[in-house]
Design a protein around this nucleic acid. Sequence first.
DNA 1: TTGCTCCTCACGTCACGTGAGGTGGC
DNA 2: TTGCTCCTCACGTCACGTGAGGTGGC
Lengths: 283, 283
Amino acid sequence: MEPARGEHSLAIGEFAKLTHLSVKTLRHYHDVGVIVPALVDPHTGYRRYSTSQVGSAHLVRRLRALDMPLAELAKVLDASDEQVRNKEILEFLQRMDDQLAQFRSAVASLRALLSEPSDGTDVTLRHVPLTHSVARAAVVHRDEIGDWCATAFPALYNAIEQGGAHPVGHGGALYSPEFFENAAGRVVAFVPTGRRVDVTAGLESYDVPAALLAVALHRGPFEELDRTYGSLGTYVTTKGLRSAGPIREHYLVSPDDTDDFAELRTEVCWPVDPASASEGAPK
Amino acid sequence: MEPARGEHSLAIGEFAKLTHLSVKTLRHYHDVGVIVPALVDPHTGYRRYSTSQVGSAHLVRRLRALDMPLAELAKVLDASDEQVRNKEILEFLQRMDDQLAQFRSAVASLRALLSEPSDGTDVTLRHVPLTHSVARAAVVHRDEIGDWCATAFPALYNAIEQGGAHPVGHGGALYSPEFFENAAGRVVAFVPTGRRVDVTAGLESYDVPAALLAVALHRGPFEELDRTYGSLGTYVTTKGLRSAGPIREHYLVSPDDTDDFAELRTEVCWPVDPASASEGAPK
DNA sequence: TTGCTCCTCACGTCACGTGAGGTGGC
DNA sequence: TTGCTCCTCACGTCACGTGAGGTGGC
């Protein structure tokens, strides 16, 4: 890219003043291709920027202030079409709104932890029978679990309807230990149907196994599930129960039912070995 | 720290389930002293966590969701006193409010850049004489410039009053090239007094040098100063003017005068070599 | 006893910042 | 010509994640 006629060229230090980006930052942006100098002296390696690059540098500064990754930034700047570029930026701003909401709820969650006493969550033991269901399984990262469920459950309910069947209970999911221990692992989202249903690609007919479950009811947003997991896990541990199989969640009141996440209700179910439970009973 | 009587011990994988922190993360937190296991088997190295540690792990998760640095987190958790701890957290939440405001203004600044055309800022050339002032100088990082000015200027106005003098113009500051090029550099905040004033420690009597200034008026928040710098710097470059000395800002309407940052008015002044200006004149 | 869980390095990632040591431009 | 600006490595930082390779516990 050569400077057009009438444009003037700036040394990196001058360009830093006009853009409020540091020299170190500018060199880094050159390395990764975010802002490439209009000219690089082949002999000395001196970078020369054109005054016409100042505007996009200002854009870069603003997008970086909002933590847009450099790789995405490079793509945005490369967008040949002006309108494509602005559309991508507006989509990014949309994601920023989501982040803002997350931020707010993180603050609320911290305040709640400080103000509310560690609750003595009620735990009940419950036998559940094998349950015919329609399910979708995948390896999911914890960060993406919300989005994944948001597409999985509509697909499941839709498939059940297409199959001429009806849900006979709330949707739920099984979480492998790796999901918690590695922050990513196999998740099975299911909706019970009571009978086998023919399903389309991407879904499967699945029998949720019978189990003895230690169950606690979680009230509120999913980000605060750790508290209920803590109470339930402490209960299981102190009672000397041995865990048996993937943890389950039952979505009694889900985001499909309410926009107020304080109203969400989730059963957290910790499968336990019946032998360990009966050992504890006589005590 | 040994587990108290009645507490039960958890392997790292179990602790991960109760806290929703990954095993890798828990090992890292051990390394840096944020969450130290209640017990480490000296033979096998196996970590053992007590159920009483679950609560502080939940706190850690929330503070990390708000990007509290681990070093600060370790201090918060070490706070012997319960009240000290909560006070530190509430102070942190206060800082979060500030961050939230910054985030909003970053979004606004991006939208403004997309919607408003690159403005043809008016630039004027102006000779200013040497000006007796009271000043405070320091090496300041760009991130801290706002806070630094917020303490510097009240100190300057106060010293002038104590010295029985009066300000004879708006406050301003000189910014060394390094401030822009390295994101940190010498800054001199000054308030003109028209005469010498005896000053207290930390301040100095300072003569702002005479200069020929290329001046542009910036309207709006300081985060958007880059746009005015871009216009002004482009002007100086295209006119073939040589810059001469640190850039100055004059705070015509400052945060002391208004809470609405859209109303801020800042003169950005680019000292230029008079010889280069007269060369341009005949053209 | 099998496999699962746990362990410790060592290195990678992301977006720069920090020197060291050296050369070019006005 | 002096000093200032610019250059390129190489390494550090922060908060983890990613394997590799190996051992302990039920």
